[in-house]
């Protein structure tokens, strides 16, 4: 990751997203290999690394009989803030995440969404250099998701690097500038968001042919830039292509040469969801 990135981390269930996040934040000690964050090795300098990261873990609970403010003050003091600064920052952050009215209430009365907001607030204490979020928008309503997105963008403008894992692909599309896709513990794709659709295939051409037959389908499949084809109906076929140039004229010419009658030829770009599904299927 580069400084200032908002890096989206995608993967199916069990791919290794949460394990990766635990390794980055020191919750899990690696059996092999090294973790380097900001030129520091987690094995030797974990204390220094923990000073510059903020973590929003998944599925973690707070103490039911303590207030949000009390939690924040404690976490602030663990981040080397004195009592006064910890209280001030806690109040500011709780306001920012929309928990101003609930800061003195016990966590036992909090909804899932409110706990998520508290999780984000505690991670932002002492404005860390790197913010790591594990599915932060799970359980939030659309208004909450929008607020979180705006908050993350605001901190990113202040040069905060953000690492966010999510299943919400549309959400990542709206916020991240880089995306990594993990499958079975390995990164299978990593690039800028505009380039990730280039993965395996960077476009889909929908072709309607009146006399579509297996011979024409085979001819299309054998083209070198064609990744795969999907038959949509008796006369319509989706062709997934991987090419930087416009290949529609070439496909059209080939179909016509083989006595095909084309009535539709439309190109669509792949969404991140399609790219993700393609990438994980391919691996």
């Amino acid at each position: 990751m580069e400084r200032g990135d908002i890096y989206g981390f995608l993967g199916q269930n069990g791919a290794g997203k949460t394990t990766t996040i635990k390794l980055l934040s020191g919750l899990l000690i690696p059996s092999d290999g090294k973790i380097i964050i900001d030129c520091m090795d987690m094995g030797n300098e974990s204390e220094n690394i923990k000073k510059i990261i903020g973590l929003v873990p998944q599925d973690s609970d707070f103490y039911d009989n303590r207030s949000a403010l009390s939690h924040m003050q404690y976490y602030g003091r663990l981040k080397d803030l004195n009592k006064k600064d910890a209280t001030e920052q806690s109040i500011t952050l709780l306001n920012k995440v929309g928990l101003k009215d609930a800061m003195h209430e016990n966590i036992g009365h909090f909804s899932h969404g409110m706990k998520k907001r508290l999780g984000i607030a505690q991670a932002l204490l002492k404005e860390p250099k790197i913010l790591i979020l594990d599915e932060p928008t799970n359980g939030l309503d659309p208004v909450g998701i929008k607020q979180i997105r705006e908050l993350l963008n605001e901190y990113n403008k202040r040069d905060m690097t953000i690492f966010i894992s999510s299943h919400n692909l549309l959400e990542l599309q709206g916020i991240c500038n880089r995306v990594g896709i993990i499958n079975d513990g390995k990164i299978i794709a990593e690039d800028k968001i505009e380039n990730i659709r280039h993965l395996e295939s960077n476009g889909v051409i929908t072709i309607g042919i009146y006399n579509l037959n297996p011979k024409i389908i085979n001819i299309i499949r054998n083209l070198k830039f064609v990744v795969k084809t999907e038959l949509k109906s008796e006369n319509v076929i989706d062709v997934f292509v991987n090419s930087k140039k416009d290949v529609k004229p070439e496909i059209n010419k080939l179909i016509v040469e083989n006595n095909g009658h084309v009535f539709k030829l439309i190109e669509n770009s792949l969404s991140l969801e399609d790219a993700f599904i393609n990438a994980t299927k391919m691996h």
Binding site: S25, E47, L55, P57, K79
Partner: peptide
């Protein structure tokens, strides 16, 4: 068990 330790261990050793 509750996972509250994660908020602490991400800040201290």
């Amino acid at each position: 068990q509750t996972g509250s330790i994660r908020y602490i261990i991400s800040k201290i050793d």
